[in-house]
Design a protein around this nucleic acid. Sequence first.
DNA 1: TGATTAAATCAAAAAAAATTGATTAATGAA
DNA 2: TTCATTAATCAATTTTTTTTGATTTAATCA
Lengths: 113, 113
Amino acid sequence: MKTIIPIHEVKINTAPNDSFFETYEAKFKALADRKRLQIMYELTQRGKTCVCDLCDVVEMAQSKLSYHLKILLDANLITKEIIGTWSYYEINNSAVNGLLSEELCCIFRPSGS
Amino acid sequence: MKTIIPIHEVKINTAPNDSFFETYEAKFKALADRKRLQIMYELTQRGKTCVCDLCDVVEMAQSKLSYHLKILLDANLITKEIIGTWSYYEINNSAVNGLLSEELCCIFRPSGS
DNA sequence: TGATTAAATCAAAAAAAATTGATTAATGAA
DNA sequence: TTCATTAATCAATTTTTTTTGATTTAATCA
C-alpha cells in the first residue's frame, strides 16, 4: 500500500543537487520578464485564450508573442491546446501555486478561486 | 487609528500596472540563475556569512561573487552588514516568504523554522 | 484547386547579462 | 607609514537572450 504524504508535510532532508537548481533556474527565467508576467496575468484574467486574441491584448507582434509563449510553455507555467488553426493557451494553476507565494498567486489566480 | 490588515486577507481589486510587473521582473531575474539560487541556499543553511567564506563554499571568484550578491541585494532577497573589512550577507526571509510557495520557501528557510 | 488565415520557426541583428582580470578603496596590523 | 586583507568596481570580452521580418506549415473556406 502506498502512503500519500501531503506536500506541506514533506521534509527535505538532503541538500538540493545541481538539477534542482537548474529546474528552478528555468522556471524563474520564464518569469523574469515583464511581458511574460503580463501574459500570465492576462491568461489568468481571461482564462483559456487564443494567440490572435492575446496579440491584441498584450500589443505584441505574433512571432514575438509565440517566442514568449514557448518559454512559458517549456517551463510548464502554461498549457496549450490546438483546435483547428487556433492555439489556445491557459495558466497552469498547480505549477504556479507550487512555485509562488499565496499573495503572489492571487495575481495569477482567477478572482473567484 | 490605523487598521492592520493581514496580508492574506488583502484583496487585489485593481489591475497590476507596469511598475508591478517591473518589480517582480527584477526579483525573478535575481532568482533566474543556478549560482544565485545556490548562494541563497547556502545563506539559508549557514545563516549570516561573510563574502570570503562564501567564496569557498560556492567555489566562485571574488569579483564574480560580488556581482551576483549585488543582484540579489538589489532585489531585496538578501541583506548586507559591513563589519570592519568584512561584509556579511544574510537571507531576507520575509521577502522570500512573500515571493515563493511554502514548499519552495522550505529550501530557503532554516531547517528549525 | 487556389486563396486565406493562424501560428510556429528561422536567421540575422540588436540588446542585455555574465565573466574575467585588473584596479581601487577601506580597514587593520606590523 | 607601509603592508596585507577584504570586497566593490571597472572595462573589455564573451555569452545569452530578445527582437525583427521573412518563411514555413497546416487548417479552413470559397
